[in-house]
Structures are given as C-alpha cells and as structure tokens.
C-alpha cells in the first residue's frame, strides 16, 4: 500500500456527495429506530436488519462503480514509479476506509449514544467487516470484467445471492432432507455466506438466536456463544482476504 496515494483517495471520497448522503441515511435510520422504540435489544435487532440489507448493497455497488470510474486515474497512477499492488491496496483501502468511516459515524453515533454497549460494538464491528467484504467482492467483479455493465451486473447478482437467495436455499435443503441429521452440514453451509455469519455473530451476542433465523439457532447449538463468535469472526476475515487477494492477482495481470 502507498500511504501517499491512499491519503488523496480518502480525501476525494470523504468529500463525495454519495459518502455524505450514505452517512446521513444511516444516521437518520439508526436514530429513528432507537428513539421510536424503547427496548434497546429490539433496536439492536432492527439496526442489524438494516445493516445486513443496506451495507452489503451500498458497498458492492459503490465499490464496483467507483472502480470503473477510476479507471483512467488508475492508469495514470500505473504510469508513475509505483508498484501495481500498492495502487491496488490504496484503492481498496480508500474505498473500504471511507465507506467504513461513513458507517461508523452514521450508525455508530446513534448506537453508542443510545447506550447499546457491547452489542453496539458488535454491530459496528460486523458492519465494518461487511463493508470490507463487499468492497472485496466489488473489486473481484470489477477486475474480472472489463465491461462496466457486466461488472455491475455481477455485483448485483452476488448481493442478491448472498443477501436474499442463500438463506432460502439453505432452508430448502434442510426441508428436502429433513429426515437426515444435517445440522453439521448446515453450519458448514452458513460459513459460505458472510451475511448469515454476521447475523449469527450479533444474534449470539443478543442471545435470541432461536427467534431470528434458523441458521442462527443451529450455530448456537453447535458452538455455544464464545466459540461461535470467534469462528464467525475468523470466517468473516477470510471473506475479506480471499476475494481481495484473488482480485489483486487479476489486477496484477490486467491490461489497462
């Protein structure tokens, strides 16, 4: 990573209307959820649902569009005496850093001010990790496809699959093979989806996993709270690292 390039990318993004609007949107949503209801546990679940839906969508679409819009700037940087991987990491950290800052300010200030203590911290950690994960996936679809429309299309499909289709798919498998002891396999399947993993991480913390989603209940049954949280966090880290490194590999061989 090149800190000098990163500094200017961050400066550019933090001034963008989109990032400011995203911060305001998260702030207003979180504030209204917290102050309309009076139960902090319910508020945490509501904010969780916003995070699980909005953060992945915004990060993957913004990350993808930004990558394509920065193509000429990336080309310009590549003609300077600086390594390709430094440019890649500066771009990656610039986008994930600015989106994370928007998330931490937008959702974090209301959550902390409402006194949702340790659960609030978990919400912020999970949201930030989801930000990094979906920017990694955005970079993956952008480096694979030279064409912007295809790249954005792939990103939408990835989001739709991980946020909407996947849980239904797991439920369908469980229902079809309900006569077999599938719990272990369901846990393994869940690790294939960062959105489900994030949900489990928070639900294990709030301790109402049985009420929210079928996979959460299974996860708690297998791992118990602390082990479950640790494994979820490690798997989320893998979800950041693996797509990012595959994208770097493609970026290093890419023609501009």
């Amino acid at each position: 990573m090149n800190t000098k390039i990163l500094k200017y990318i961050l400066l550019d993004l933090l001034r963008s209307k989109f990032i400011i609007s995203y911060t305001l949107f998260l702030f207003l949503m979180s504030m209204s959820v917290i102050y309309i209801g009076h139960d902090s546990s319910k508020a945490a679940v509501s904010i969780l649902n916003i995070i699980l839906f909005v953060v992945p969508l915004v990060c993957i679409i913004f990350g993808t569009i930004h990558f394509y819009n920065s193509r000429e700037f990336i080309e310009f940087l590549l003609t300077q005496p600086v390594a390709r991987k430094s440019i890649f990491w500066s771009e990656y950290l610039g986008i994930s850093g600015s989106l994370s800052a928007a998330f931490i300010i937008g959702a974090g200030v209301p959550v902390i001010s409402a006194g949702i203590n340790i659960t609030g911290v978990y919400l912020l950690v999970t949201g930030t990790m989801l930000t990094f994960i979906f920017v990694s996936l955005a970079f993956l679809s952008s480096t694979i496809n030279n064409d912007k429309v295809r790249g954005v299309g792939l990103s939408i499909i990835l989001w739709l699959y991980l946020s909407v289709i996947f849980d239904g798919f797991v439920m369908m498998i469980f229902y079809m093979f309900r006569d077999y002891p599938l719990d272990k396999y369901i846990v393994a399947l869940t690790s294939l989806n960062p959105v489900d993993l994030s949900r489990i991480l928070i639900l294990l913390q709030i301790d109402i996993s049985a009420l929210m989603g079928f996979t959460g209940a299974t996860f708690q049954k297998f791992f118990g709270s602390i082990t479950g949280k640790f494994i979820s966090l490690m798997l989320l880290l893998l979800w950041i690292v693996i797509p990012a490194f595959i994208s770097l590999r493609i970026f290093n061989r890419k023609n501009f």
Partner: peptide
C-alpha cells in the same frame, strides 16, 4: 513522462 489520449481524475480531487 506520459500524456494519455484521455485524461480523467477523481471529481472531488
């Protein structure tokens, strides 16, 4: 020193 055909930079920079 390189001058490309098309130049475009981040709009808030």
């Amino acid at each position: 020193g390189y001058m490309p055909q098309i130049a475009n930079y981040p709009e808030n920079m």
